[in-house]
Design a binder for these strands. Sequence first.
RNA 1: GGAGAGGUGGCCGAGUGGUUGAAGGCGCACGCCUGGAAAGUGUGUAUACGGUAAUCCCGUAUCGAGGGUUCGAAUCCCUCUCUCUCCGCCA
Length: 428
Amino acid sequence: MLDIRILRQDLDSTVTALARRGFAFERERFLDLEARRKALQVRTQDLQNERNTRSRTIGQAKARGEDIEPLKAAVGELGAELKQCEQELQELQTELEDLLLQVPNLPDSGVPEGADESANVEVRRVGEPQPTSFEPRDHVDLGNPGGWLDFEAAARMSGSRFVVMRGEMARLHRALIQFMLDLHTREHGYQEVYVPYLVNANALLGTGQLPKFDADLFSVHGEQGFRLIPTAEVPVTNLMAQQIVDGTDLPLKMVAHTPCFRSEAGSYGRDVRGLIRQHQFEKVELVQIVRPQDSSAALEALLVDAEAVLQALDLPYRVMLLSTGDMGFAAARTYDIEVWLPGQQAYREISSCSSFGDFQARRMQARYRSEAGAKPELVHTLNGSGLAVGRTLVAVLENGQQADGSIVIPERLRPYLGGTERLVPPSK
RNA sequence: GGAGAGGUGGCCGAGUGGUUGAAGGCGCACGCCUGGAAAGUGUGUAUACGGUAAUCCCGUAUCGAGGGUUCGAAUCCCUCUCUCUCCGCCA
């Protein structure tokens, strides 16, 4: 969430900045709540001060063995108004807090302004789509033989937007995960972490999925109020919640492989075919916790780390800088990486890399000390997919396809498949 | 699931109703001492919010979380939560 102090000090420019990303801040309501809060807080604290002072006097009088009954009666008169004030103040503060939790992050300077993805800016294009002498098929057709990819079987037990993988396809999927984890841990300096897939509401509040986007999440029955993680960003970033770390320990670079669960409410009819948009998918996620002055450079570096996966797999892609209207709620700046899919003759998102400034850190009270004895300051958080595994599988299949339906495996991946150079569809 | 014991500052650890935001120790910061260092020694050392523009000053809140009792709660009562030990079950 935003620092309430910038709303107090620079309200107009903040409202303008929020409008750039299509958010209408309730300016008048905020001013009204703030004015009432301030008056009530002063009054409440005065009353508390009065009560504390008199109670102390009673204690002293009692110690001297004096009669304290008249004094007690006098304090008692404060009680009713104080209780009333405390209650109203708490309600006001809760209302103000709720208002702030609904406000998205401010876009970084340099983020292109626009209402939607049409205003996104292409940053670079790497690799060339390979021409084929035949009409390229999409991954659904390529994965059909032998039930490599079986959407019907998944639909019978779970419904749409699920998949069953078999044999070499399941193995290739697993190999991609291992490859990505090895690359990021061995070559990019990330520490691998294993984290819960069920989290509480507070964790989701910390990264910004709640309170606004509960409809996108799956909740689990039971008293604990668990929700399934929509991304490893939630549990990994929340490792920092309520923590104060030494500045010398930063940056923290972590990578996790987790399944991700998304309800995809409101996406009816979009990408209904194939693996692109599933309720359950695997992702390898990169998370960095850095000093504020390092976050810009860290985002560029994290982006390069994610791109390295595509380069290693010889997959053509482009990098897009998202416009204000296309960015997520908590992001200050976001790059999407889009991979070339011959089956769709289009670039499709395969990674999203964002910096959040102190927006998430403030929500989860994630702090560091710049030096021993210094005051704790909020860290900056970043994350990015490195990569979405299901979509990477799609890209490997579609870009590696041959006229006979076989799939040439990228060289860097072959050691993870026992040296297999090519997947040949089962004959039956 | 059953039984028991506990959650106090960056860490350890006192504290069962009254100037306790909290003894003492460790750690840390600064000073003294020293040729320099160690040892020794002195002082300081939580966070958030508000009054203010303010790193000073003043106030309020915070001893796992939330309620309650009381003039007054770290201390008493209730609920929840987490940790540990034993039993049961289980991968």
